[in-house]
Simulated assay, not measured.
Amino acid sequence: MKDILEYLFSYNTLKKEEAKSIMLQIPRGVFNEYEITSFMSVFMMRSITIDELLGFTDALKETAIKVDLNTSDLVDIVGTGGDGKNTFNISTLACFVVAGTGQKVAKHGNIGASSVSGSSNVMQELGVKFTNDSEQLKKQLDQANICFLHAPLFHPSLKKVAPMRKQLGFRTFFNMLGPLANPANPDYSTIGVYNMEIARLYNYYLQKEKSHFSIVHSLDGYDEISLTGESIVIDEKGTQLLSPQEFKSNKIAEHDLYGGKTKEAAADLFLKILKGEGSSAQNEVVITNAAIALQNTHKYGDFEECRNLAKESLESGAALNCLNQLISA
């Protein structure tokens, strides 16, 4: 690792195979935690290249524990995290709203590394049991229309670096890898990113890997459609700049998206919103992100039709029922 670090500290970048080789060695214990931390820190000082992203992601997929859900007709809504906004768990809530419409969802998530509460934290607090057993995950999918894939159970590299990421407390390049490495390989991915540079890298990657995808970013820095201002939506057809009004919504304030100071508070708010007790602003942002994911499948009509489906899922209690079924499964 010393030679690798000296090479990188001299403003060099890694070729795809070099990046892949390093990532493959991390779960094998070849490097100690100080070396891995130094390696992660390099990519806080400069942007990751497309070759590095390809190499790291290929390694993550190659070493992943395989899962067979008997279908790839699945949606995932996931953000990179690392936007520093401490929002409530919008993407995860949107997944349950999508599941409440009848669309199957394979949610890939993790504990919060640079935030108070990641999707896995909330699921744990609410009583969801994590597993990497395909039969158990299929049971979740059958009963609840959604299964939850806790990333460290499928990706040895992520498990190895999780304590180091938490100690660092800021985003690292690992934030970029998880959304691209869902072990269920869903047909439809909606991914939120924290800046436009990452959006361009993802667009390059997903154009090669996916038939249907959407990348979302709010121009004021959120890794989702925040409705606090204009948002970028990128899909296989191109790029759009959209206002809250074009999402059939009003502009909302940043404080409406606050997620709380503890994992317990985040879980309480999550459940409150699913029970229909959230504010109109909270409901709007969840419905909007769910609608984009439904539209991305090209199965449910235009955005307005998808928005109506998402709204019905939340307001009828169908989304809440999916959570209850997932817990009991």
Rank of each mutant, 00 (worst) to 15 (best):
K248I: 04
V233F: 12
H255K: 15
F88N: 03
L149T: 12
L177V: 04
D73T: 04
P156M: 04
S47M: 03
R46L: 01
Q207L: 07
L137V: 12
I232F: 09
E209P: 02
Y11Q: 04
E264R: 15
H150G: 01
Y258L: 09
S115Q: 15
K139I: 06
N289Y: 04
I50P: 00
H212V: 00
L74N: 07
A266C: 08
N12Q: 02
L54F: 07
L323G: 00
L227T: 11
G301L: 11
E277M: 10
A94Y: 02
C147D: 06
L24C: 09
G55Y: 04
G100A: 05
S47G: 05
A319L: 02
D302T: 12
V105C: 07
Q143P: 00
N86M: 06
A290W: 06
N195C: 13
A290G: 11
S279H: 09
R46Y: 05
G100N: 03
L69T: 13
S218W: 08
C147N: 10
D187N: 11
I77S: 10
C322R: 04
N195W: 06
I111Y: 14
F31W: 12
D83G: 06
H298G: 02
L257N: 11
S218L: 05
S316V: 11
L153H: 12
Q25V: 01
F56M: 08
M23I: 07
V78N: 14
A64Y: 11
Y205I: 10
S115P: 01
